[in-house]
Simulated scan of single mutants.
Amino acid sequence: MSFRIIADSCCDRTKETEAMNNITFIPLTLSISEYSISDDENFNQDDFISRVDEAGIIPKTACPAPDAFKKAMECDEDDIYVITITDKLSGTYNSALQGKMLYEEEGEKKNIHIFNSLATSGLESLIAEKIYKLASSGKSFDEVVSETEDFIVNHTALYFCLESLDVLNSNGRLYAMAASILKKIKLKLICERTTEGSVKLAGQEFNSNRALIKMANIIAADMKDKDASDKKIILSHVCCEDKAKLVAQKLENVGFKEIEIVKASGLNSVYAAKGGLIVSYTK
């Protein structure tokens, strides 16, 4: 059976996803005051962050309309796998579900599954790569869905370290008082995604580089008793490739098959903000 992968634009673009000829990206919308752009292949991270700095305000984001997913499903392929950002951060997952419902209301019959990535960024990319390999190997639709759902929950992880907590605070991810205190003492938080798709604290440091090294050590400890020879790690940065290279260097001894550094997509550039680093990996 032929298949198509549909991913929202929170899925960071890797060498593997760029090489796929059967993947469709559904863009979210980003806005800074009156300036608005689509988070698509033309997104320019440096220009966008420069505009954010100049405006001095926190950008707003909007998830795709259900019709965008519906139209993407009107393709020639028989099996459709949709990947979205965690439903704890965006309404995109629900929008995709509604798009599927609209498509099926027209009497169309296809195998369609909506994956809640329980994360964002490079972890979505790893899910897309996993689906591509499974489906290309001849696995049935149900087998691909079952193995991918298990992969998401049990065989992936995501950590991040941010230079600024302003966006998380503005989106209600931190209590205002806690955010104010953390900002004053310049504490750098290391956070990880939970298997429920939310965020929890994994560590903290008073210095950015020390926080990055601690994050690398946490990941190395997580992989200590695992064979990483067929595993991949993606480091998605927001205007801080030097930080990504530092963490990549600290993780070289883990033995990952591949370490890839990419620029974060538009939505992830908003959430992580300038200087933010998101690390996604298989385990």
Score class of each variant (00 low, 15 high):
residue 172 G to A: 10
residue 217 N to M: 06
residue 210 R to L: 13
residue 183 K to Y: 08
residue 176 A to G: 10
residue 237 H to C: 04
residue 12 D to G: 04
residue 43 F to V: 00
residue 162 L to P: 02
residue 56 G to M: 03
residue 154 N to P: 01
residue 93 Y to G: 02
residue 227 D to Q: 02
residue 280 S to V: 02
residue 76 D to Q: 10
residue 39 D to Y: 08
residue 165 L to F: 06
residue 175 Y to R: 05
residue 241 E to W: 03
residue 68 A to T: 07
residue 228 A to H: 07
residue 135 A to R: 03
residue 103 Y to H: 07
residue 83 I to A: 02
residue 7 A to G: 11
residue 138 G to H: 13
residue 35 Y to V: 07
residue 106 E to Y: 12
residue 160 F to Q: 00
residue 239 C to T: 15
residue 46 D to A: 15
residue 191 C to F: 03
residue 21 N to C: 12
residue 249 Q to A: 15
residue 196 E to N: 14
residue 271 Y to N: 14
residue 272 A to Q: 06
residue 48 F to A: 05
residue 107 G to D: 08
residue 255 G to L: 06
residue 158 L to I: 05
residue 35 Y to I: 08
residue 232 K to N: 13
residue 145 V to S: 01
residue 110 K to D: 05
residue 120 T to C: 13
residue 103 Y to K: 00
residue 250 K to W: 09
residue 12 D to V: 05
residue 208 S to R: 13
residue 162 L to Y: 05
residue 36 S to V: 13
residue 77 E to C: 05
residue 269 S to I: 07
residue 220 A to Q: 11
residue 253 N to F: 07
residue 195 T to G: 09
residue 65 A to V: 08
residue 76 D to A: 15
residue 148 T to R: 01
residue 4 R to P: 00
residue 181 I to E: 06
residue 140 S to P: 02
residue 176 A to D: 12
residue 10 C to P: 03
residue 21 N to R: 15
residue 27 P to T: 08
residue 180 S to T: 11
residue 253 N to H: 12
residue 113 H to S: 02
residue 160 F to A: 04
residue 126 L to F: 09
residue 199 V to K: 01
residue 229 S to K: 05
residue 216 A to F: 10
residue 123 L to Y: 00
residue 212 L to N: 12
residue 223 M to N: 09
residue 54 E to G: 13
residue 223 M to E: 10
residue 120 T to R: 02
residue 237 H to L: 04
residue 92 T to M: 07
residue 232 K to G: 09
residue 50 S to C: 14
residue 251 L to G: 08
residue 222 D to H: 13
residue 257 K to D: 11
residue 97 L to D: 03
residue 218 I to L: 15
residue 149 E to V: 08
residue 200 K to R: 13
residue 179 A to S: 15
residue 33 S to M: 09
residue 111 N to M: 01
residue 47 D to K: 12
residue 182 L to Q: 05
residue 151 F to T: 06
residue 268 N to H: 07
residue 238 V to G: 12
residue 130 K to N: 10
residue 86 T to P: 03
residue 195 T to D: 11
residue 25 F to K: 00
residue 154 N to S: 14
residue 160 F to C: 00
residue 275 G to A: 14
residue 229 S to A: 10
residue 226 K to H: 11
residue 176 A to H: 14
residue 132 Y to M: 01
residue 253 N to Q: 06
residue 182 L to E: 03
residue 91 G to I: 04
residue 52 V to N: 11
residue 182 L to N: 04
residue 281 Y to E: 00
residue 136 S to Q: 12
residue 30 L to Y: 05
residue 53 D to R: 15
residue 115 F to K: 01
residue 179 A to L: 03
residue 33 S to K: 14
residue 77 E to V: 03
residue 70 K to S: 09
residue 206 F to G: 15
residue 24 T to F: 02
residue 44 N to E: 09
residue 67 D to R: 12
residue 133 K to R: 09
residue 3 F to E: 03
residue 41 E to D: 14
residue 163 E to G: 15
residue 257 K to R: 13
residue 206 F to Y: 14
residue 183 K to A: 14
residue 120 T to L: 05
residue 47 D to P: 02
residue 80 I to G: 03
residue 4 R to F: 01
residue 105 E to L: 07
residue 168 L to M: 13
residue 148 T to A: 06
residue 91 G to Q: 07
residue 236 S to Y: 05
residue 224 K to Y: 10
residue 95 S to I: 09
residue 113 H to E: 01
residue 49 I to N: 09
residue 184 K to Q: 12
residue 39 D to V: 04
residue 273 A to H: 10
residue 78 D to P: 04
